[in-house]
Amino acid sequence: MRLTFPRTGRLLAAAGLVSLLAACNSAGRPAQYSALEGYVPDPALKTASKNNLSGRVRHACTVTQAKLQKVEEASLAAPCGCYAERTLSSLDKDEIASYRSTGYFNDSARAKALNALDSCKLPRPV
């Protein structure tokens, strides 16, 4: 399947995927950010609209969940839309600021993201 996104869209989608994977995979690990050494967050995050942030989180969810569940990405539009909406609406100002500056969810935002996965009936990444 060929992506129809422009290069910028693919970069934004990749940044969203990295943030979701970092948020979900590093929970409970003592050196939780060591896997992100050398990672540079997308500078566009700093000025991205809430709608853009939601799109990034939703896309990262669909890519990650499609691999996890071994299903087509299109089948995850509704549950990942639910996930993105619930996650971002539950984040406070500081958690959103942290996401904008680092490109991944901090510890408190990660907990909220995991709760959103549960609420939207999506499996947690292992």
Rank of each mutant, 00 (worst) to 15 (best):
M1G: 12
M1A: 14
M1T: 07
R2K: 10
R2L: 07
L3T: 08
L3D: 12
T4V: 15
T4F: 03
F5N: 07
P6T: 07
T8D: 14
L11C: 00
L11G: 00
L12K: 14
A14N: 05
A14H: 11
L17Q: 07
S19Q: 04
S19I: 00
A22Y: 02
A23L: 08
C24Y: 01
C24T: 05
S26D: 04
S26G: 03
A27L: 03
G28V: 15
G28H: 14
G28S: 13
R29W: 14
P30A: 12
A31Q: 15
Q32W: 14
Y33C: 13
S34C: 04
A35Y: 12
L36T: 04
L36I: 07
L36Q: 04
Y39N: 00
Y39Q: 00
V40I: 13
P41V: 00
D42N: 03
A44H: 08
K46C: 00
T47R: 14
T47V: 07
T47H: 06
A48P: 06
S49F: 07
S49M: 10
K50Y: 04
N52R: 12
S54H: 12
S54Y: 04
V57L: 14
A60Q: 02
C61I: 12
T64R: 11
Q65W: 10
A66K: 10
K67L: 12
K67T: 06
Q69F: 02
K70F: 10
K70Q: 14
V71Y: 00
V71D: 01
L76Q: 09
L76M: 11
A78K: 14
P79W: 03
C80N: 11
C80T: 10
G81I: 15
Y83M: 13
Y83Q: 12
A84P: 08
R86E: 15
T87R: 00
S89P: 00
S89A: 07
S89V: 02
S90M: 03
L91V: 15
D94F: 08
E95W: 05
E95R: 08
E95D: 15
E95N: 14
I96V: 15
Y99L: 15
R100F: 05
F105R: 04
F105H: 09
F105K: 07
N106E: 11
N106A: 05
D107G: 10
A109P: 02
A109M: 03
R110G: 05
A111I: 08
K112W: 04
K112H: 02
K112T: 06
K112E: 03
K112Y: 04
L114D: 06
L114I: 07
N115I: 00
N115H: 01
L117P: 00
L117V: 02
D118V: 05
D118E: 06
S119R: 05
S119M: 03
C120V: 10
K121M: 02
K121T: 08
L122W: 13
L122G: 05
P123I: 02
P125Y: 02
V126S: 13
V126P: 12
